[in-house]
Design a protein around this nucleic acid. Structure first.
Lengths: 278, 278
DNA sequence: CTAAGTATTGAATAATTTATTCTAAATTAG
DNA sequence: CTAATTTAGAATAAATTATTCAATACTTAG
């Protein structure tokens, strides 16, 4: 990492040729990757052996050693710069797009433990773990999340039920009791059908976990355990994606918590494992 | 940059010797700096030429090229780790869990543009953009991804069709023609039902986009445009989640690309906007 | 100012490292 | 079981890197 600084520091006590080499390397550190000692010599107008001797004088074993050190310096510098993704005009549109998406995602997910108290998450995991069955519901993008969660719970041997038809979900809900859990997912927390379910849960004393965006809303108010998925990206395209992914992320955390405490015999029923049994 | 992930992702399709090499490199990435191809061969118990061929197979020019890439990965990782909050022993298990999940996710998604050529992504976006209808299919976890994509395409006014029943999907496929697009999602790329669809697509000259894990497989071979979602986290719980999220991420990128080029009148039919119209 | 000593340079060459070729073995497909 | 393809390694070619050495320049002491 100190490589370039080291070279710069020794500039003064160098001979003419050495200095030319040093200048070239400092100016083209990022290109050195693709230069052989001979090519570097040619570029600077000197001999290959002088290049090697230059390297050794700087304390490196030889040319490849210097080259590696320079590359590392370049990488370190660019990695450090990259954390706040500034728009590189050379880079393509696509690159920028992906960069922006990933950056937003990263910063959104980071906050998830700030918004959801550790205790709440553990409570939620406990409820689900002890439940005889879990009714999951969500519409629109939240339905995707719901299915994701169902898929994972089923793999753990937990009976997770779900339907995209609101009236059937109500029918399903009637099979629940206070040993079950209802888990309702909604961005707004205002979905009428989900609120109906929530009222039913309250009435029947069924534990209710809500997963909504971060604001007080009818659904989270009714919940035994209220989880929140952050939203708020300024880009109107990206925001819905982020909300959904934040919801999924919470579900995945829940799933991983369940993995930790679930008895071994049911673990990891991957399709492949199930196939083996059949 | 994603060199190590790339290697890990290809572990499964490697021969014994290749695998030994890969394992050694993954275990000793930080030591590779000081190994020549011959030394590496000795350490692993193979021939120098096999080392070189291994490098070339992975897409590198030769051994020095791989070595440099690995060094870069090591540097990048250690630089990133220095930034990301290191594991505080006081912090709870939950915190560690979330941290690990987020870190893996972050590093996985970063590599997506390394594995998928820009041109391929644009090709895929173009095909979908011009298609009169898009048949999407995927089973298991990939079905979640498929539904996610369907949801977003429908919001753009693109007719995306999908069904979880394989035999119905085949019926649906019969409504496609060469102006349509088929988009098949599978981790393994071996799902028999999807391969059947792929053959049908080839036969009927329907453009086929595949989305599989990074390795050559029957499905990607048959595809007009093959996209890849990296896999390879060492944790058996986390890996399936990462694979799925990588697939979703690719779909989201595709969606955002489509947003850019789609005509305005159809844009962003959110449930709320649709409600307003009714 | 000169001559001896020292440092610098590059051509030639040695040594090492990397890449390719080709054959034999192994695996796979038919 | 045979043919075809793939894989591995020995031999070798090619390339890159390091050293030697002779020539030149530069320094300094006389």
């Amino acid at each position: 990492m100190m490589c370039l600084l080291k070279i710069r520091g020794m500039l003064e006590q160098m001979s003419v040729i050495e200095r030319k080499l040093a200048d070239f390397i400092l100016d083209n550190a990022n290109l050195l990757r693709d230069y052989s000692s001979q090519q570097l010599a040619d570029a600077v107008g000197t001999s290959q052996s002088s290049v090697v001797k230059f390297c050794q004088k700087l304390g490196y074993k030889g040319y490849p050693d210097l080259k590696l050190a320079v590359s590392e310096a370049v990488i370190t510098a660019s990695t450090l710069n990259r954390d706040s993704p500034e728009l590189n005009p050379v880079q393509s549109d696509l690159f920028t797009l992906v960069e922006q998406l990933q950056f937003s995602l990263h910063s959104h997910l980071r906050g998830i433990l700030d918004v959801n108290d550790e205790k709440l998450l553990l409570d939620a995991a406990n409820s689900v773990n002890q439940a005889d069955k879990i009714l999951i519901s969500g519409f629109g993008a939240s339905n995707i999340v719901a299915q994701d969660l169902q898929f994972r719970l089923l793999q753990l041997g937990k009976l997770a039920i779900l339907h995209s038809d609101p009236s059937l979900v109500v029918q399903m809900a009637s099979t629940l009791n206070s040993n079950s859990v209802m888990l309702l997912i909604s961005e707004s927390g205002q979905e009428p059908d989900l609120l109906k379910l929530a009222r039913y849960a309250t009435h029947k004393n069924i534990p209710l976990i809500s997963l909504t965006s971060y604001k007080t809303n009818a659904l989270s108010m009714a919940a035994t355990t209220a989880l929140y998925a952050l939203s708020g990206d300024e880009n109107e395209r990206i925001n819905p994606i982020l909300v959904q992914l934040a919801q999924q992320h919470l579900c995945h955390i829940l799933y991983l918590l369940l993995c930790q405490r679930h008895n071994v015999e049911h673990q990891l029923k991957t399709p492949a494992e199930i196939d083996d049994l059949l």
